[in-house]
């Protein structure tokens, strides 16, 4: 096919317009992703110097991967993880996702309330959406103050309510994770999930409710038999995105609020990757391997989710 001159010019200018984006993507995303895949098979630290890559870094094969997920046997024939931290932090990551069902139910509930034609709804929508547009660092710092066991508002309320020894929250190995989950709920209940649900609720045909009412359905029955199935594609979307976010998440909150502590109880896999790659040790090879393992886990969970949960979704799913 031969293009006319004007057509070709148009194509060139189109390419020129997307060039900055593509260039940025290539330099800051595509290249690092590819590089990390290569690095995962080497023992490389930036301290060796990039130019020395071929000379001094040793090819590790699958050793980095095996170090993260493998087990070895002690002299007393008991089995131990090669890297116990990997499993502990993977556990932390999964536990911190315990808030997801609550976030889904909560945002559906609030969206339901806000979808009624009442005065002041736009104001409430704004208020509930605020956490999503507020800077993460600022909210983490405020929550850190709220959660302070000595001077924080939360414990002040608990004390006033007559509790003798309120939790030490971020300073207690067993309370730090619940504290982060509660904080996560605060921002995720009223955020994008709520907006998605609002849109979804508004697209449910009113006739369904009207005919259900004629058949004598009450509020609860209408919710269970109409609303819940009709919003199920949205629920599925939110669930799958929350899981992906959950596996990759936890870095910012931990970095700012707990530094992964106390005793590693709030270190997630992504924070671990950061520590390996950028603390005093710069173990880029191993960090890359852990990052790719995290990717594989996320991919596997998403695929399972896709195949198992999709069957329970009413109608067509996005895509």
């Amino acid at each position: 096919m031969r293009w006319s001159k004007g057509r070709r010019l148009e194509a060139y200018s189109a390419l020129l317009f997307i060039l900055p984006n593509v260039l940025g993507f290539a330099v800051f995303t595509l290249f690092p992703v590819a590089a990390s895949l290569i690095l995962a098979f080497f023992n490389w630290s930036p301290l060796q110097g990039a130019s020395d890559f071929s000379g001094t870094s040793e090819f590790a094969g699958l050793a980095n991967f095996w170090h993260a997920v493998g087990f070895h046997q002690h002299v007393d024939s008991s089995w131990h993880a090669n890297d116990a931290f990997f499993w502990q932090y993977l556990g932390n990551t999964v536990i911190l996702m315990a808030g997801i069902p609550f976030a889904i139910i909560g945002s559906l509930f609030i969206a339901n309330l806000l979808s009624r034609k009442l005065k002041g709804v736009p104001l409430f929508v704004t208020v509930f959406f605020l956490p999503s547009v507020t800077s993460g660092v600022a909210t983490y710092m405020i929550w850190q103050i709220l959660l302070n066991p000595e001077k924080g508002l939360i414990n002040a309320v608990l004390l006033a309510m007559g509790m003798d020894a309120p939790p030490q929250w971020l300073h207690d190995v067993s309370w730090a994770k619940p504290a982060l989950i509660i904080m996560g709920l605060w921002s995720s209940i009223g955020g994008y999930n709520m907006v998605l649900y609002l849109a979804s609720l508004q697209s449910i045909p009113q006739e369904l409710y009207e005919s259900a009412e004629i058949d004598g359905a009450g509020g609860f029955a209408k919710f269970v038999h109409i609303t819940w199935p009709m919003v199920s594609p949205t629920t599925f979307f939110i669930f799958i995105m929350s899981l992906i976010g959950g596996f990759q998440g936890g870095f910012a909150a931990s970095y700012i609020m707990t530094k992964g502590g106390p005793a590693g109880s709030t270190t997630t896999i992504s924070y671990y990757i950061y520590n390996l790659a950028f603390s005093n040790f710069f173990e880029m090879g191993y960090a890359s391997a852990v990052a790719w393992i995290l990717f594989l886990i996320t991919l596997a969970v998403s695929l399972i989710n896709w195949n198992v949960t999709r069957k329970r979704v009413h109608g067509e799913v996005f895509v």
Partner: peptide
């Protein structure tokens, strides 16, 4: 302590457990 990231993390964790009363 400074020759291994894993040892470094573990020492820090055990110290924190002791000093938070865990």
């Amino acid at each position: 302590r400074q020759v291994s990231p894993l040892l470094d993390i573990q020492i820090a964790n055990e110290r924190e457990k002791i000093m938070t009363g865990t």
